[in-house]
Design a protein around this nucleic acid. Structure first.
Lengths: 180, 180
DNA sequence: TTGCATATATTAACACCGTTAATTATATTG
DNA sequence: CAATATAATTAACGGTGTTAATATATGCAA
């Protein structure tokens, strides 16, 4: 007889600990032994609740994407698309480590891409649905997100632009060029 | 008395072996032990020629960027900017692992970013210099590369779009939207 | 409550990794 | 040839993910 409730609770303990580590110290600090210490469990106990460390990490990543979505949609600045997109970019500027982990780290971003593609598509769709203006040409939203993600990639991985203010200026200019 | 020529040659042996591994099997397969096997040297000998494995990898990355630049500029399709940009994208579509390594992998892309930023800026500049049309507004080239890099990021890490043909169609459409 | 079966947690171990110190082999020079 | 400088190797350390074997806790029937 398994105690499903207890199992779920312990699972959540591991997830929460992993999320904390990922947010504060990044993926490099995440290890089975570290999560063991942080939760009080042995490092091997994790393997009773997750297939491997990747599974634990993936669960966190989907959680973070959900947080991103909620953060964007609850930021009641306006329903103008440029403000929604700015909120999207802001979330990841706030947590550059999460952007790297979810979108750029080949060890994770590339794994089970269908799951993450679905979730990111969901976010993109939610943003353009929430917007007050509609775009008939579906390539405009795609181009817009490619441009923003390219900018975020450059910012988090190559520090180009170097600081936050410059990033926001560039983002604004790019949105204007796209007539967004 | 050190034999500089001999040293340089052995250094090049390690670099070549590492480049082969990176191109064929990717960064995950690169290790000191593996390069030792591939070259016939002991794994520790590498440390007589490189500070650490990161240095070896970085040398390879700069080499690859140089290859990319030469590949783009020697592809005598035309001097139209859209063809040059297509050649740029093609290089990394051909070697997705290299794109991931150089631009998206946080372990490498983020390290010594100034060195790589310089080199990538050099490529971007070379492309727009070789182009037959000139852009007065400097934000257009920046936006263009952000869009292409966003598309490449999505393609290599999330398989969106799923195949090469689709990628090329999307690239063409995005260039047209940007009036490039 | 006791005893037992089941479920869960822990420890120990294995195979990797990067890196370094100590040791051995090889060149070079007097 | 012998002494010295240089380079390559082996052995070791501390880290990683993961698994098998072992210990502990839990749930339940008698």
């Amino acid at each position: 007889m398994v105690n499903q409730l207890k199992q779920d609770n312990i699972r959540r303990i591991f997830i929460q600990a992993a999320k904390n580590t990922l947010k504060s110290e990044g993926i490099k600090a995440l290890s089975a032994r570290e999560i063991g210490k942080a939760t009080g469990f042995s490092y091997a106990t994790i393997y009773n609740y997750f297939k491997d460390m990747n599974e634990l990490c993936e669960v966190c990543m989907l959680d973070f994407l959900e947080e991103c979505k909620e953060s964007v949609l609850s930021s009641t600045i306006s329903t103008e698309i440029k403000d929604l997109l700015k909120a999207y970019a802001m979330f990841f500027v706030q947590y550059p480590g999460l952007y790297v982990l979810i979108f750029t780290d080949p060890n994770y971003a590339g794994r089970f891409y269908n799951k993450f593609s679905e979730k990111t598509e969901e976010i993109y769709k939610a943003i353009f649905d929430a917007s007050s203006t509609q775009y008939k040409n579906p390539h405009i939203p795609v181009l817009t997100f490619n441009a923003i993600n390219g900018l975020l990639l450059s910012y988090v991985n190559r520090s180009t632009p170097t600081d936050f203010e410059e990033f926001m200026v560039l983002l604004k200019e790019q949105m204007e060029l796209l007539s967004i």
